[in-house]
């Protein structure tokens, strides 16, 4: 994504020092307000466009509880491996930020969709509602807007790469059922059923 296309609500600019790192998600704290989606789409699309956001909130029962989904920058990169574009793959690692980025010009789009299927998270790569090209979290070129705006503390930017992001990258259903198990200990009826998901 070209720098300067959208708005940074945080007012930060690229002169700030970029540190490699990733976005930490504390699912328990997410209120489902979707400010992250909105800040994300403002930076990437130049307008509020929840459906074109790189981070997105899914809602699950019981609760309901909301789970933010985004690319966790796994080190084994199954998405890059799956990309069939030749000679140079459409997905690569940005050297400056360490983020997985998808080159929109090269991407074959939703008809291919192999990267999305390969994802450990299964949902972190989605498709742009207008162009149908694959989109994912590119850490806003190193200064993630979602982590800046999140008012509840569910999202924060963790500088440095202490451990592999793939530890986060579970199926959303699994995250939701684990969270429900933790949050609603008495909720035998629903959570026990869902533990097997």
């Amino acid at each position: 994504m070209d720098e300067g296309k959208g708005y940074r609500l945080s007012g930060r600019n690229m002169e700030e020092k970029i540190i490699k790192g990733f976005i930490d998600v504390n699912w328990k704290l997410c209120t489902g307000c979707r400010l992250c989606e909105q800040a994300c789409s403002l930076y990437h699309e130049g307008k509020i466009w929840p459906e074109a956001s790189r981070i997105f909130i899914l809602q699950f029962d019981p609760g309901p509880i909301e789970i933010p989904i985004l690319c966790h920058q796994c080190s084994d990169h199954p998405c890059i491996e799956a990309c069939p574009v030749k000679p140079e793959k459409a997905i690569s690692i940005n050297k400056k930020t360490g983020a997985v980025v998808i080159e929109q010009d090269k991407c074959l789009g939703i008809k291919c969709g192999r990267c999305a299927k390969a994802c450990h998270h299964e949902t972190a790569i989605r498709f742009h509602p207008e162009t149908n090209k694959a989109i994912n979290c590119d850490l806003c070129d190193g200064l993630p807007e979602c982590a800046w705006i999140c008012p509840s503390g569910a999202l924060s930017f963790l500088p440095g790469q202490t451990f592999d992001g793939s530890h986060y990258a579970k199926r959303p259903e699994k995250i939701a059922s684990d969270l429900a198990y933790q949050l609603f200990p008495a909720n035998k009826l629903e959570t026990d059923k869902r533990r097997d998901v």
């Binding site: 209120t31 489902g32 400010l35 909105q38 008495a186 909720n187 629903e190």
Partner: peptide
Amino acid sequence: VKNRGCYLCPFSCMQLGVIRDGKHAG
């Protein structure tokens, strides 16, 4: 249990809770 909120609201004033014991536990 936690706060839930309306779209774009930094307050998120809806308080999600669960009944922990008794007839309607869960």
